[in-house]
Amino acid sequence: MQENTMFRTLSRVMLVALMATGILVTSACVPLEPQREYVQRDDLQVDPEIRQALTVSELLQSRVDLPGGGSLLKIQFSVKGYQNVDMEWKATWFDAEGMVVPGVGEGYNTARVMQNQTRFFTASAPNERAVSFQLHLREDR
């Protein structure tokens, strides 16, 4: 009677150990998503949904001189794809007081970035008043 109970307990322990080993082995086979470095910036927002698929490798800004003496803020950014991804992007422009400088529309630009491809994008401010910007990248909806 006692032997029988011990045998049952041992069987249960072995079963649990087997299951745990199975889970560990299975999880070891699942490819781990590499963690991409994402640096939080005021002028760049990348939605979490696409952070694993691409990275903004550079974000440059300069002012383009105009014949009349003024200048326009222009940005250039490059995106490197870790996998094929459809994304949307939009630049919002701000004046010295932080107010939005309206452009033509409010829509996003769509773009497809292939795996291992680096694409360059440019945008220019709609008015000379623009002194800063915020670039937003999100998943294509």
Binding site: G103, V104, G105, G107, N109, A123, S124, P126
Partner: peptide, 9 residues
């Protein structure tokens, strides 16, 4: 909107 935005920029 896209065409106008690209043209104006």
């Amino acid at each position: 909107e896209r065409a106008a935005d690209a043209a104006v920029q």
